[in-house]
């Protein structure tokens, strides 16, 4: 499993995403540039220029037509994937920490940062999937987080709920239509920020990563914690693999402490755990800074990670990975034949 190194960014990566077909990887970094890459060989497809500050987040719609980005220049932008044309810019008072399309691509949410005088919010826009059409100026929904600011958020199946992870380690469930807070529960340790929230393909459950060194698998319906994955390092990201029942966790010593710690001690490894049995299966080394984001190919054939070191590492799984089965899984597979 020799990785492909994408070295087009000059500063730390903040998020990487595959499009639904898995042939393109989008990456955003603190160097203000959005990159698009062919996932199979790591060739650069193009870049999207326009942002005036560090980028925090990127997402692509289900048809790979539209791309949404958000960053420290207090704007959320919509691009045409094909041409790189900037379609729409929404301005805010604070930076955008997270953007995400709904499953049907007709809604887009953005998480805004909290700053003196401005509470953290989650804004939702209706999106017209036609790149030629005008997009709405005004948000369809605005959720104000007056307790603890949201750090990550996403749409559940059928956009029924909006699930948000908070700075204090809790997870909230909002009504997707009204924005009403339905439920809030402390899933991670107190004041241990939820750093990532990624959905299972059918959006009935999700995985959260936290600074409390653990990742949790949670149902969208009841926010019930199904599984917990415990590591020995603060986590920045957690992703689920399709085909195989694994999760990939990424993190490492906080970026500000990195200069004082060796790569070994920083634990800059992608860790594979079995999703159901919660046991560690393996680790992939390579980054020399913390992993800021891990994304899995939608067809489950590989994964990529973006690091504080400025590199994206794209991995394609080899045969041994697919052959690996626990004894009980093998039994199950044979029973289903």
């Amino acid at each position: 499993m020799r990785p492909i190194l994408l070295s087009g960014h000059e500063r730390a990566l903040t998020q990487v995403k595959y499009n639904p077909d898995g042939d393109i990887i989008f990456s955003v970094s603190k160097d203000h540039v959005v990159g698009a890459w062919y996932s199979h060989n790591g060739e650069r497809l193009g870049t999207y220029h326009g942002h005036q500050g560090a980028l925090w987040t990127v997402d692509v719609d289900p048809t790979s037509t539209l791309l949404a980005t958000g960053g420290a220049d207090n704007t959320m932008r919509l691009w045409e994937v094909k041409s790189g044309k900037l379609l729409k810019t929404w301005d805010f008072a604070t930076s955008i920490k997270r953007v995400e399309f709904s499953a049907d691509g007709r809604q887009l949410l953005g998480v805004t940062e909290k700053r003196s005088g401005h509470l953290g919010t989650i804004v939702v826009y209706d999106i017209n999937p036609d790149p030629e059409a005008d997009q709405a100026d005004d948000h369809a929904l605005r959720i104000v987080c007056d307790e603890s600011k949201a750090t990550v958020a996403g749409f559940s199946y059928l956009a029924r709920y909006i699930i948000a992870g908070h700075e204090d380690g809790s997870v909230s469930q909002y009504d997707g239509k009204t924005g009403e807070l339905l439920y809030n529960t402390q899933v991670h340790e107190d004041d241990m920020q939820v750093t990532d929230l990624q959905w299972a393909p059918d959006r009935t459950y999700f995985i959260t990563a936290s600074k409390d060194k653990s990742a949790k698998l949670i149902t969208a319906e009841s926010l019930e914690v199904l599984k917990t994955y415990v590591t020995d390092t603060p986590l920045n990201s957690a992703a689920m693999t399709s085909v195989k029942d694994f999760v990939i966790l990424g993190g490492g010593q906080a970026a500000m402490d990195v200069t004082t710690t060796s790569a070994r001690q920083g634990k800059f490894e992608a860790r594979f755990y079995h999703k159901i049995f919660m046991e560690e299966i393996g680790r992939v080394r390579g980054h020399f800074g913390p992993l800021n984001y891990v994304a899995v190919h939608p067809q489950g054939t590989g994964y990529c990670s973006g690091g504080e070191d400025g590199y994206v590492r794209v991995h394609h799984f080899d045969k041994a990975y697919f052959d690996f089965l626990y004894e009980v899984e093998r039994e199950q597979a044979q029973a289903n034949l």
Binding site: A103, L158, P201, D202, F277, P298
Partner: peptide, 28 residues
């Protein structure tokens, strides 16, 4: 594994009832 598979089954059933085609198709 048994618990997990059971839960997944119930989720898929629920999505089918709701008519969530995109979700059942893995987001495509």
């Amino acid at each position: 594994l048994r618990e997990w598979l059971e839960w997944r089954e119930s989720m898929i059933e629920m999505l089918q009832e709701e008519g969530a085609e995109i979700e059942l198709n893995g987001g495509k």
